[in-house]
């Protein structure tokens, strides 16, 4: 992966006086470490999964029991982290309305590389029962790169833990490079996002 040059984003939807409050740098893909170090780090990443505890849809209701005595996801190194700055995973909890999508993008972009996306429920895969709704998006991976899908309406906590374990395998194999993918195809994702979000009153990249 080659690092791109520092590119300035226009932030054209922001008011002129607000523009210097926000960063205008493009995200750049960051190259991996050397082979063995990257393997070691990936092992640590896979065993310390901090997910953003931000309920974006009805599927999030099945995320709460993960932390209770019955399912106890802490055993696998999975823990909720309430701030996007520190978490490595964003859980898309089911259907995403256009209004929620905006928040999802903001949160996702604030997370630090490497970051992973797990998408719950049928709705975020193909629209589910909201497939013809006027304000619900059908496919989440047009807007952010998804690592693991967990189907169901809604998936049980066991299924979510299985999904986390699937993500662990992906991370250990070195395939979970969503953040770099997002940076490389930034224009594609941004165009898709702007097509669907009409009131775009935030910077082009929410660092």
């Amino acid at each position: 992966m080659k690092e791109k040059k520092y590119d300035i984003l226009p932030n054209s939807e922001l008011k002129a006086e607000d523009r210097d409050l926000f960063c205008d740098a493009r995200p750049v893909p960051v190259s991996k470490l050397n082979k063995y170090m990257e393997k070691l780090v990936n092992w640590a990443r896979a065993n310390s999964l901090w997910f953003l505890a931000f309920g974006t849809g009805c599927g999030a209701v099945e995320v709460r029991p993960l932390m209770t005595a019955r399912f106890d996801a802490y055993r696998y190194g999975i823990a909720g982290r309430p701030t996007p700055r520190q978490s490595g995973i964003i859980l898309i909890g089911g259907y995403a309305s256009v209004k929620t999508l905006k928040r999802i993008i903001r949160s996702y972009e604030q997370m630090q590389n490497p970051k992973f996306v797990i998408s719950l429920c049928s709705c975020s895969i193909n629209g589910g029962m909201y497939f013809d709704s006027y304000n619900t998006i059908n496919q989440i991976d047009k807007y952010i790169p998804v690592d693991v899908y967990i189907t169901g309406c809604m998936p049980r906590p066991e299924a979510i833990i299985a999904g986390f374990n699937k993500l662990k395998d992906r991370i250990k194999a070195g395939n979970a490079e969503g953040a770099n993918k997002y940076a490389e195809n930034f224009d594609y994702y941004k165009a898709n996002q702007k097509k669907i979000i009409k009131d775009w009153n935030m910077p082009d990249y929410n660092w």
Partner: peptide, 26 residues
């Protein structure tokens, strides 16, 4: 006490190592 098994005792080390090796920091 809460009736869970809980994370492994070496979890803090893993967390620190992971955070240390994040690729970006604002």
């Amino acid at each position: 006490v809460y009736g869970r098994y809980g994370a492994p005792v070496w979890q803090p080390f893993l967390d620190i190592f992971k955070n240390l090796n994040k690729r970006t920091a604002i």
